[in-house]
């Protein structure tokens, strides 16, 4: 069990990246990446849920008996999701309206549950918090990159509406690469999500190969 923080960080952000290596949590990865801003917002919401639920599961791990652990995990994740849902509805309303349905759906995202089962159930509270947080941030990076690629090719912008959705401080991030109506529409439509994710998995394999690492040929699919 790696309780070494450096490994945890590296695992979460790159080596075992939830999206590109483990292929978990695909639904928000496809649905919420029509722009980099949406991907970033969705990723942060998921990261918050993951950090909080990993921490709680690790704290209570001695109290949670083996037989009822799955219902308890689901309950904890669902409760954290509801907290995020209520808080975003109240204080980040514009972003909430965009993400809508996919905030409650974090509950059935396989990534948080997979990390609870694989890490938090057997670790101390603080390493679990770090694991949840950095797995979540790795997820955020993946979603932002996929969103960025789709947005640049599809609509010719990057981080459009960031000031509206995330706050005025993000205005400087809004960029335009192509003139309006020049984008390849397909990329922001559903098929683009599949294409971009497929090619980005290949890109990560290529980078891993260049770095002399073994490439993972299959995704770990333990949970639905």
């Amino acid at each position: 069990m790696p309780s070494n923080y450096k490994t945890i960080i590296k695992d979460g952000l790159w080596d075992n990246n939830g999206v590109f290596s483990m292929l978990l949590g695909m639904c928000p990865t496809m649905a919420m990446t029509t722009s980099a801003t949406n991907g970033f917002g969705m990723g942060l919401a998921t990261a918050a849920v993951m950090a909080a639920s990993s921490f709680l599961v690790a704290v209570f791990r001695k109290r949670i008996t083996q037989e009822v652990r799955i219902p308890v995990y689901i309950l904890i994740v669902a409760a954290m999701v509801t907290l995020v849902d209520l808080a975003m509805n109240a204080w980040m309303h514009e972003l909430y309206k965009v993400l809508g349905l996919f905030i409650p759906l974090i509950v059935s995202n396989c990534l948080p549950l997979a990390r609870l089962e694989a890490f938090a159930a057997r670790s101390e509270a603080l390493p679990s918090l770090a694991d949840g947080l950095f797995m979540g941030l790795g997820f955020t990076i993946a979603l932002t990159v996929i969103g960025g690629v789709r947005e640049i090719i599809g609509s010719g912008t990057l981080f459009a509406d960031a000031s509206l959705l995330l706050g005025p401080a993000f205005r400087s991030m809004e960029l335009r690469f192509l003139p309006a109506d020049m984008g390849v529409l397909m990329m922001v439509l559903p098929p683009g999500g599949f294409f971009v994710t497929g090619y980005l998995v290949v890109a990560k394999r290529l980078l891993d190969l260049k770095a002399g690492k073994e490439i993972q040929m299959t995704g770990a699919h333990s949970v639905g």
């Binding site: 209570f60 109290r63 949670i64 008996t65 037989e67 009822v68 219902p71 308890v72 309950l75 904890i76």
Partner: peptide
């Protein structure tokens, strides 16, 4: 088990 679940 019921108690654990109920408490949570």
């Amino acid at each position: 088990h019921g108690l654990v679940l109920g408490c949570f």
